[in-house]
Design a protein around this nucleic acid. Structure first.
Lengths: 218, 218
DNA sequence: TAGATTGTTAATCGATTAACAATC
DNA sequence: TAGATTGTTAATCGATTAACAATC
């Protein structure tokens, strides 16, 4: 892999989409594709595809295009989808349960190793082979099993109360569904925020201003 | 309100966050705030705040700053949070149920008027006062109740099969959790995509490349 | 009035697109 | 070889930041 020069957030955000489209092509037994063909499929410019891919290496061949299987595998490796990074979920409420049941963590690069909740009615329940644990045991669990990533499905205040503990105990990545702002006070951790409420309000703006240009938000 | 000039996707995406912070300030009985103070609170530049707000009007006062309550109300109105736009949810699986139970639609500008599912085991169940309906009744429902927005919590193929019907029956906005690409074939509709799987894979990239700069994605 | 802070224009920065020489 | 398509550099476009005159 080429030394990762110039990899902007925009590029990183587009990588999973490339990976997804290539997976679809692979399932259809497409063996090669040019940036132009892919650009028509994905509705982006061929230039952007070539620029994006070249942040990571020269995966194509002049006059030929890209080998779908190879490129898919390379992007998977860049995304780390085979790393099985140990991950936990904080909060087994509606959202937590939805993630547990609808997200294929192993296909995204993670192994789900623990689920934590403070509600006694939920503690002890079983989901996809994991027993929901008391969130009071979180620190001890981290010291034993060293999860690296946490999906935050608890309210802002509870997230705030646990943030320092998590970082101190080796959590380096947050998939954050709360409105707590992690990287404000935590250096060196990676955060992907998913603000569902904000995203719905953005849609409210868009349908409220139907006439205006903006038609799509990712 | 000033004529909406130059409102980019970036600005629209930031609006709900401004609204959220102002709501918090309001709860703390803060009556006025300068762009500088707000910028420190939100970790953005004061310049950007002033630029963003000025897309919609001059809500501040030289030498004083912004009236929190007024600005909060104005942003709410711009976002359309009081519009009560009729909305439906397609799919009452794990994710659909999570949205029903954890998102406050009325506070985001919507009134939830229908929930649809194809699984017979779920049809007829009750959530927050709504009975889950057979998705086969969707078209008829639309013609009677005219929902304007749909949250898509069904698989790509099912979304694809229903897309034309929905658009033909007046749905103009999609909160899309599937990997079906709406605006490819549908003109004039507004789409906010939420690709949870992609977002988790982006986090995988980030923790796989810990050393590199990027630390936060929204 | 003097001090503060906006609204807005100008400068900078970064991301996207276009172009093309390299090369399979 | 000729045609196609990449990798990469240069040009354009848009978004962010800085600066400052207007003004409360």
């Amino acid at each position: 892999m080429k030394s990762d020069k110039n990899v902007s957030n925009s590029v990183i955000n587009r990588l999973p989409r490339y990976y997804r489209f290539l997976g679809t092509l692979l399932n259809k037994d497409v063996t090669r594709i040019s940036s132009k063909e892919l650009s028509q499929l994905m509705h982006v410019t061929a230039s952007q595809i070539r620029q994006d891919l070249n942040c990571f290496g020269g995966f194509g061949q002049q006059g030929y295009g890209y080998n779908v299987e190879l490129l898919h595998r390379e992007l998977g490796s860049i995304l780390g989808v085979n790393n099985m990074t140990p991950a936990i979920i904080l909060g087994a409420g509606n959202l937590g349960k939805a993630l547990i049941n609808s997200i294929e963590f192993p296909r995204c690069g993670f192994q789900l190793v623990g689920i934590f909740e403070k509600n006694p009615a939920v503690i002890g329940q079983n989901y996809i082979g994991l027993t929901v644990q008391d969130i009071a045991n979180l620190e001890k669990f981290c010291q034993t099993y060293h999860p690296k990533v946490a999906a935050i499905c608890i309210p802002k205040d509870e997230a705030a109360a646990l943030a320092d503990t998590m970082v101190a105990n080796g959590i380096v990545g947050f998939w954050n569904f709360s409105s707590y702002d992690f990287n404000f006070h935590h250096e060196g951790v990676k955060v992907v925020n998913v603000h569902l409420r904000d995203s719905l309000m953005t849609l409210s703006y868009m349908v409220t201003h139907m006439d205006e240009g903006n038609s799509k938000i990712d």
